[in-house]
Design a protein around this nucleic acid. Structure first.
Length: 493
RNA sequence: GCUCCGAUGGUGUAGUCCGGUCAAGCAUAUCGGCCUUUCGAGCCGACGACCCGGGUCCGAAUCCCGGUCGGAGCACCA
């Protein structure tokens, strides 16, 4: 019975079963606390490479809230470690955000703000809240674990200030000094006790060259900037929970109002390489063709394969702001994307791992296959098939067949296995066939599909795909982004 | 070891703040049926969860205590 008939029957015979309404699957994000008027939020990636799937959660969540409440979304490049910078990333990160539809209203580069950090550091030194230290790393750590003050901690601020300025100017090059923020040596969490705010790095900075040599660490520059830029709400991963505690000391010393902090849980993304350093190594060694290699879960790779920006947004909005760790679900991600692309994807036949079969006793025939099922207006792919042809089918589909088994070549005719060949078994699409499979004629083209696991499916594509580009569904195979006459990128089933 | 965070079906989540309407909703996955000349889409149905133990209460997924398990951090990375 057809669905419409079922509904008709239900209406007339069993009206009571239809009262149940389908509940909405709307799943808006929870409200943020303490929103008064416009919000100011930020994304703070380091420029070690382009954005990857993991970053997109930060981008989408911040963007969603700024769009909801109105306000500013700051893209702040955290490049205070010259040893960890991939220069093209400054531009790539902006491109990736634009592609995602993330509308940042301000663009800030931290390495351009070093004088501000110096100024705040000097103020803290004179307040007695920061000190210069030249201890050996091991000694410093040991002291912290034992709640012991290092010998430099209680020297007069003026001396610290002088040393700080000498290190900044390069006059003092004798040691490896650091600037440390005083917190509480007896803080129960050792991670929060006196922490390092500046260290010397002599590597030339890709953005500022040799202008500076005393660089702030993330916790210092973040705290200063979050205040200076007027952040009202901070959303970031739960790996920053301890950093938040550390940064709060800076706010306390300056008596700055605290933003609202939210930490979402860590997402474990299986089957994906997310470490920028690994990607970069692979690109340099030739293992990957570039940052958009299908094996990488970068935004540009996923975009190239055919994921839509709306998929990212819906996935992360649905995931919400929960602070529990969870597994990323490719199933759900793909399912969202499939719904978005299905209607606009014409159908074609791709025969992976093809084998040629000889058909006997068949008449000349014409196959008219819809470009999209049940939508005649979109047109057909039409092929003339000579009598007793040789055609190619997926080896996997005929492997287990026994003599006498009937299969149907989709939109063509039935064939019956008989020893090493097949015999024509009627035009009609009867119920006897074991399955309906895709096929291609001898005008088919070689076609390779690159898959994210690094493998390639080789086979034949029907000739009418020639010259076409974009996302198509290869029937019974998967959705594929066709990027060349002989190449496609695997998207998902 | 220390600090902090959390625990709802296979997976992702809703509900938890302000206990009853939750014998727990949605999505995805799986399985069955319908539809379909795709293993896609659509429709119908099934399956399947409140970590454990105490306590408070007429009543606990929701509050309290203890345990277990999982995670994050304890870098001169961000």
């Amino acid at each position: 019975m057809k669905p419409e008939d079922q509904i008709e029957l239900a209406k007339s015979e069993y009206p009571d079963i239809l009262v149940e309404e389908k509940k909405s699957n709307e799943h808006p994000l929870a409200e943020l606390k303490n929103v008064r008027g416009r919000v100011v939020m930020r994304m703070a990636p380091s420029p070690s490479g382009p954005l990857h799937l993991g970053h997109t959660r930060m981008c989408i969540l911040n963007d969603e809230y700024v769009k909801r409440y109105g306000g500013d979304l700051i893209l702040r490049i955290e490049d205070t470690n010259p040893n960890n910078i991939y220069p093209p990333a400054y531009e790539m990160i902006q491109e990736d955000n634009r592609w995602l539809g993330v509308n940042f209203t301000k663009f800030i580069i931290q390495s351009e703000r070093i004088p501000l950090y110096y100024e705040k550091a000097e103020e803290l030194i004179m307040m007695g809240k920061a000190y210069m230290c030249t201890c050996k790393v091991e000694d410093f750590k040991k002291d912290l674990m034992n709640s012991q003050a290092c010998p430099h901690r209680d020297i007069r601020p003026e001396e610290h200030l002088q040393l700080f300025r000498d290190v900044v100017s390069g006059k003092d090059r004798s040691k490896s000094p650091v600037l440390i923020i005083k917190t509480d040596l007896f803080h129960p969490n050792p991670a929060v006790r006196d922490w390092i705010a500046f260290r010397v790095i002599e590597t030339p900075h890709p953005h500022t060259g040799k202008k500076y040599r005393f660089y702030p660490l993330m916790n210092f520059s973040v705290a200063v900037d979050d205040h200076e830029l007027g952040l009202t709400h901070v959303i970031r991963g739960s790996d920053h929970i301890n950093n938040t505690e550390r940064q709060k000391y800076i706010f306390k010393y300056f008596d700055w109002p605290l933003p609202e902090y939210f930490h979402y849980g860590m997402i474990h993304i299986g089957d994906a390489i997310l470490k920028t350093s690994l990607m970069r190594k692979g690109i340099e060694s030739g293992k990957y063709v570039g940052w958009d290699d299908v094996q990488l879960a970068t935004v540009r790779s996923l975009a190239k394969r055919g994921y839509r920006k709306e998929t990212f947004r819906k996935y992360w909005v649905d995931s919400g702001l929960k602070d529990v760790n969870s597994d990323f679900s490719w199933d759900i991600f793909n399912s969202i994307n499939r719904l978005l692309i299905d209607k606009s994807s014409d159908r074609y036949f791709f025969v992976p791992d093809p084998v040629e079969i000889k058909i006997e006793g068949s008449p000349e025939a014409t196959s008219r296959i819809p470009l999209y099922p049940n939508e005649e207006s979109r047109g057909y792919r039409t092929y003339k098939v000579e009598k007793n042809p040789v055609i190619s089918v997926p080896s996997g589909d005929i492997m287990g067949l026994k003599d006498g088994d009937i299969i149907r070549l989709k939109d063509l005719y039935n064939i019956k296995k008989d020893g090493d060949h097949f015999i024509f078994a009627g035009m009609e699409n009867t119920g006897e066939r074991k399955k309906i499979i895709q096929w291609v004629g001898k005008d088919a083209q070689e076609f390779s599909i690159l898959k994210p696991d690094g493998t390639t499916d080789r086979g034949l594509i029907e000739s009418l795909l020639a010259g076409k580009r974009g996302i198509f569904q290869m029937e019974r195979y998967a959705f594929v982004n066709v990027i060349g006459d002989h190449t496609g990128l695997y998207l998902h089933r």
